[in-house]
């Protein structure tokens, strides 16, 4: 009974919080750099203006606190989503918007990314020659970075399984791992299934998704134990913990890599049976003796 009466009060209090307090207009020099003045779309006039509409909206809403679950609590979910976005690793945080746009245009034009090509931006009515570094291409191409949880196993045991499926398409890798009796096979299968689910959400082609990279790392905090031996000696028994990391990529990467290989092949000089390198001494048309 007490709870039901208190919760609306708390919520109302929370809704009041974002109301802007009147700010002094003394420190103008600071505000040139801050985004605060720009947020109100005017430099001086609306600094002290309250955001009335926002407050009214929340007050008119009739919310039954007993019906609120974490999943239906919009404020909570919004906050969590914001946090998750901040933590998410994505190309938007590291590559400039223009490069991203040009990359997308390039992909739309060729079906996959071709480096050092001329791209036309129809919005700005400009043409660019887009040259990206290998790392930039890696970041911009669609990929799924998978991180497993803590696994009680060792690097040696994990590597045996990793080598089996490295480079496989995700689906055939899952197929192989499902019938492998090793523990790490089960762990890896679990991880890849998570990746498959993410790919489905991102609308990637599941069939073409492949394991671009797969490695194992120490997960730290290994436990150690005394191993008593004869004649007053001791050994140390370590309990290793590892994690798996995988990068899944789509056929966009496969196609680009094939194209690059073809280009390299075309650009290569034709091979001749004899040595065509210049001689390593000065050649004169006369005898020196």
């Amino acid at each position: 009974m007490v709870l039901t009466s208190i919760i609306p009060l708390i919520r109302r209090g929370a809704a009041m919080a974002p109301r802007l307090a009147p700010r002094p207009t003394v420190g103008m020099a600071r505000q040139f750099h801050g985004g605060f003045a720009l947020r109100n779309e005017s430099f001086f006039g609306e600094v002290t203006k309250n955001d009335e509409t926002k407050v009214q909206e929340t007050n008119t809403e009739q919310v039954d606190p007993s019906n609120i679950t974490p999943a239906t609590d919009k404020a909570l979910q919004d906050k969590y989503m914001e946090e998750a976005r901040a933590e998410q690793i994505s190309a938007e945080k590291y590559i400039s918007p223009l490069k991203r746009k040009l990359f997308d245009l390039n992909v739309a034009q060729h079906g996959f990314f071709k480096n050092h090509q001329i791209v036309r931006d129809p919005d700005a009515d400009k043409t660019y020659k887009l040259s990206l570094t290998v790392n930039e291409i890696d970041a911009l191409e669609p990929s799924i970075y998978l991180r497993s949880y803590r696994i009680k196993s060792s690097t040696k045991k994990a590597t045996v399984v990793n080598r089996l499926v490295r480079g496989y398409t995700v689906k055939s890798a899952i197929n192989q791992l499902h019938f492998n009796p090793k523990k790490m096979a089960t762990e890896l299968e679990r991880l890849l299934k998570r990746g498959l689910e993410q790919a489905r959400k991102l609308n990637y082609d599941e069939e073409q998704l492949y394991i671009h990279a797969l490695w194992v790392g120490s997960d730290g905090n290994w436990q150690k134990r005394v191993d008593p031996k004869a004649r007053g000696r001791t050994g140390i028994i370590t309990h290793p913990y590892v994690h798996l990391r995988a990068v899944l990529r789509t056929d966009l990467t496969t196609k680009r890599l094939r194209w690059e290989r073809d280009q390299a092949f075309l650009a290569a000089k034709p091979s001749s049976g004899l040595n065509t390198e210049p001689l390593n001494f000065s050649v004169r048309p006369y005898f020196r003796w």
Binding site: P70, Q77, A84, S90, A91, N135, D138, S143, Y145
Partner: peptide
């Protein structure tokens, strides 16, 4: 699920690209 944050999928970005970018 009070502490359950939504799981967004990450893309792989090399360490150097992160630093420079």
């Amino acid at each position: 699920g009070l502490y359950d944050k939504p799981q967004l999928s990450d893309s792989f970005i090399p360490k150097r690209t992160k630093r420079v970018g």
